[in-house]
Design a protein around this nucleic acid. Structure first.
Length: 404
RNA sequence: GGAGGGGUGGGUGAGCGGCUAAUACCAACAGACUGUAAAUCUGUCGCCUGAAAUGGCUUCGCAGGUUCGAAUCCUGCCCCCUCCA
């Protein structure tokens, strides 16, 4: 392996490696490493935020290392104590299994399945006894756990911390012991948990795992970490036009982060992009389109990316109607000359373009509903068969009249 | 065991007998502007009826009660949090 490749892997998108020197030595020694990554099966959907770490795993796999994917079916019941997360409903075993399947299906779009070992926490925690729990917890102190920033913040703010939440890092640490992880991967927000694993391994007399932390991907809102609950995410499962559009909707300020964390576009090129942006020699939109193509290509195909781009140019940039759209078939009152009189409310409601009748009225009064570029001011319209109704910028509906 | 605080629309959070379908902020949606995005300005933002003024229905943890009238008062219940021990 070239030094250049290794540098790329150790630097691109990486927030911190603990301890980098140790990891380098192991890599140089040609050791086949066990790379740990856990996931929470209470949420089956993978978005680009997860992809950042997954891509890194993939890069290591290409060097011949082994990924160990932990299905966190026990920790899922606790809920990651990130901030003020509400207590989640307990999932049944079947739900967890179904979620895990969905998750893995998406996970293996990026990570090589052949070089991945999947382990369920229930394999070891399922037979954990109280004695085991006490033995595990006795190794740590409250002060140690309160060292974690969000615990200490909550504690000093007088906000609740559930005991199970304190247990979370311990369980995650124990996973590392069981699978004898050499490196644990995660977002930088996982630092504390990963370090606990390192510590526990040492107490038990195992070699300590290295901790490989990736930068967090900011969501499409440009404010907060990408997450499903905030709705600022781009899902792996998003269809090409949607995925492309969501990428285009990120703020310009995130452009380079996305390139860095989600693509393999070489550093050299990225440096040029940065320079051009700084000199205002390029329209950010142009680069963003490149980014969107890169991403759609990864999860779909080159053709899909091209189609998504032309769809975007047509619908969003040129404000034209897309080629494909929802279609509503209904019966209308016949007027002369192939024209029909129709109340569009039902059509819009039935096809989910609006939520209520009141919304239709509101939209009309705001001039948001158009037919052939003409704003309408009444829900009853006289139109020929096949007319397209546009609601706002992106909602379209084709009306087809059913002849009685 | 004791003391105290609280449960309000997608979120935060005011209101504390009629002027309240419920302030404000955020999110969302629409319009204008525009280079994708952002920013800005304007408007909308429970459901139904009506062209509209209007009207009806449902909503402030749950169940009852007081009252001409309750998110607001009373009773019971459920849930959450903090502090002391």
């Amino acid at each position: 392996m070239s030094d250049k490749r290794l540098e790329f892997i150790l630097k691109r998108g990486v927030a911190e490696i603990i301890v980098e020197e140790e990891l380098r030595r192991q890599l140089e020694a040609g050791k086949k490493l066990r790379l740990k990554m856990g996931f929470d099966p209470s949420r089956p959907d993978i978005h680009m935020g997860h992809v950042v770490g997954m891509r890194k795993l993939r890069q290591f796999q290409e060097l011949g290392h082994q990924v160990v994917l932990i299905v966190g079916d026990w920790t899922a019941q606790i809920g990651d104590p990130s901030g003020m997360s509400q207590t989640r409903p307990m999932l049944s075993a079947e739900e967890v299994r179904a979620n895990a399947d969905t998750y893995m299906q998406q996970f293996f779009k990026v990570v090589d399945k052949e070089k991945t070992e999947v382990r369920w926490q229930s394999e070891w925690f399922g037979k954990f006894s109280l004695a085991d729990v006490i033995r595990l917890t006795s190794k740590f102190t409250v002060a140690q756990l309160l060292a974690r920033e969000d615990f200490s913040n909550r504690y000093s703010a007088g906000r609740p911390i559930a005991i199970t939440e304190l247990l979370y890092p311990l369980l995650q640490a124990y996973d590392s012991v069981v699978i004898q992880a050499d490196v644990e991967f995660g977002g930088i927000d996982q630092k504390f948990n990963c370090l606990m694993g390192r510590e526990l391994q040492q107490m038990i007399g195992q070699p300590r795992q290295q901790v490989f932390l990736m930068h967090l991907l900011v969501g499409t809102d440009g404010q907060q970490k990408m997450s499903k609950s905030l709705g600022n995410y781009i899902a792996v499962e998003d269809l090409p036009p949607e995925m492309y559009g969501k990428v285009m909707s990120i703020p310009d300020s995130l452009l380079m982060d996305y390139f860095e964390l989600l693509t393999d576009v070489p550093e050299k090129e990225l440096a040029e992009f940065r320079q051009q942006l700084a000199a205002q020699a390029v329209n950010p939109m142009t680069l963003k389109k490149r980014l969107a193509r890169e991403i759609v290509t990864q999860f779909h195909s080159v053709e899909a990316a091209r189609d998504a781009e032309s769809h975007f140019e047509k619908v969003v940039q040129n404000k034209e109607a897309p080629e494909k759209m929802e279609q509503y078939t209904g019966i209308a009152f016949v007027l002369a000359g192939g024209v029909y009189r129709l109340d569009i409310t039902k059509a819009l409601l039935e096809k989910g373009l609006v939520k209520s009748r009141g919304e239709v009225k509101r939209l009309i009064s705001q001039g948001a509903i158009e037919i052939n570029g003409e704003k309408i001011n009444n829900t009853t319209v006289d139109i020929p068969d096949g007319t397209i109704i546009q609601v706002g910028k992106r909602r379209f509906l084709k009306i087809s009249i059913k002849k009685a």
